[in-house]
Design a binder for these strands. Sequence first.
DNA 1: ACGATCTATGTAAGCGCTTACATCGACGGT
DNA 2: ACCGTCGATGTAAGCGCTTACATAGATCGT
Lengths: 342, 342
Amino acid sequence: MSEPKPGRPPRAVDVAAAAEVSIATVSRAFNNPEKVAPAIRERVLATAKAMGWMPHAAGSALARRRTSIVGAVIPTLDNEVFAAQVGAMQTAFAERGITLLLSCFNYDQDQAVHDVQAMLARGVEALAIVGEAHRPELFAGIRARHIPYVVTYSHRPDSPHACVGFDNRQAFHTIARHLLDLGHESIGVIIQPTAGNDRVAARLDGVREALAERGFGIRPQHLCEGEWSIDFGRQSVRAMLTTDPTPTAVICGNDYLAIGALLEARAMGLSVPRDLSITGFDDIAISRQLDPPLTTMHIDNHEMGRRAADYLLACLEGGQPAATPPLVPTLIRRGTTAAPHH
Amino acid sequence: MSEPKPGRPPRAVDVAAAAEVSIATVSRAFNNPEKVAPAIRERVLATAKAMGWMPHAAGSALARRRTSIVGAVIPTLDNEVFAAQVGAMQTAFAERGITLLLSCFNYDQDQAVHDVQAMLARGVEALAIVGEAHRPELFAGIRARHIPYVVTYSHRPDSPHACVGFDNRQAFHTIARHLLDLGHESIGVIIQPTAGNDRVAARLDGVREALAERGFGIRPQHLCEGEWSIDFGRQSVRAMLTTDPTPTAVICGNDYLAIGALLEARAMGLSVPRDLSITGFDDIAISRQLDPPLTTMHIDNHEMGRRAADYLLACLEGGQPAATPPLVPTLIRRGTTAAPHH
DNA sequence: ACGATCTATGTAAGCGCTTACATCGACGGT
DNA sequence: ACCGTCGATGTAAGCGCTTACATAGATCGT
């Protein structure tokens, strides 16, 4: 008879002893309930509950060779778009009894490599990673272990990775086109650091391309690159408006920057959109509430998280799921864009 | 000689074979490097690196009887205050090689119980939990396993739990006092659901108490309770301002509600703070950017996360750390409060 | 009534790792 | 030269669980 040690969590063998069955039956009662006679099953389950026992994940993982853990690698939780994505993934995985391990690499590629290593050591069975601008060893490490992964928030047509996202270049091409079609010819850009961030680089390309198609370009003094924050948006607009000629519209890399731009423009006494058009990107919760409400592009981050999770889940069940079509961000024309005022 | 199976991740025994040492030495090279001769250590480490091997967490956890996992239980990532707290914890734990497991219970007590169970099964060694309004079995389960835990975002003087937070009642007493001192006598409240949320309930008590001290109360029609969202803030203010008498000030349960209140008041043509004073709570990033900037209370969520982590870390190292003193939220008087206009 | 078949349960061999303990030289004191 | 000591390494016993395989009744067809 197994002697349950006091002060330590019970083990399967303790439950087995208490329920007067073998340890195998205890395990089966939890993992293959249909394989054990109803009466015994109930007895085992009841005893386990009474003793507060559940199969310990480490032992189970070892024996099963399945950890039921998957990892999500995002830049930061401070941006609600990633938080939403993570939330959706967590929900999708939880339904299947899978635990989500989270890592925030803070836009630091070395940190990302390190975090992924740690996750691999924890035995993650799949990974979702924001962006594809990562050190090669990051993907190499994952591939070496034959672990399925998916890149989110990005979707280049010719990416070597499975991805669930949208075409950042295309999206910003659309935004720029919107402004060009309104008649803007002098367009400024306030954007996050492009270094080590494929998504942002693609966005800038998209703008450049759209402008070039109409024979325009971005004046160097109308391009501000820096941390995505309301403050950087503010200071960038202020700087731009001291140039001559001034831009009649500003494309911002995300909504935070756009909010800063909008607030500062108004603080400077400009009328938006009459004197300056402003666009954001992401459509965060506050954007529609501003005065005037922000013209931006809406991304369904929830959907993106769910799709990423579904893709990985499918991989885990042995499938080689079809690549999902890219998501399409939609332009939400609200109050911060209009034809330029002369 | 161990034959590394192709297509499967290498194991310690494979590394041992390749480096021509015993498996014990491999383990020591990683966990007690000082116990193995430098030459051999280097050889082992190099072989391991070449083979892409790291100790597998499940095996290690089992043998060591330490998982190096701790759990954080928060309501949602959609609120930046919790996201910040989690970020800080993650950083603090990562420094010690500890993995943070996250659960969002979406303000659902059953979900919280379930998530905590899952975490216990995963072998978390400590837990940080937002709020103390949880089912008794949640805490009972944790206690039964003698696992250290700490309650965050709350700090009642006579709480049975270790907590890292602040006194919600006191904080809202301070806010109400601020408005009373400005001369307001008719004060409305827009607040999150109090059911199953000790923090919110304490806030409302704080307001009531402060008003009562001056002989005032909250008129039922001036108390709106609902989901924390900008929209609910908007609709609550609109409703309140159709009553007679109207409140001259509104205390909001958090900044999102306050932002809604502010936007709607302005949309209705009111001048803030001349016609209506508004206060928030949390001091989220956008609040200082509003026009006028929001009067609110600042909580250092980062500090709270770090302290919670430090407390748990101390417990894990065997200490019985002293209870930390409560954090003190500070009132940030900005532009949305002033004396009532007659 | 007997063996074939099937179902419910038990036995025991790992899963990949850590670590107490055993072993084995090298070294130094006498 | 011998023994004690000590430091480096190896051996093997688990950690808590799952599961292939063995076993033992029960069931059924003939």
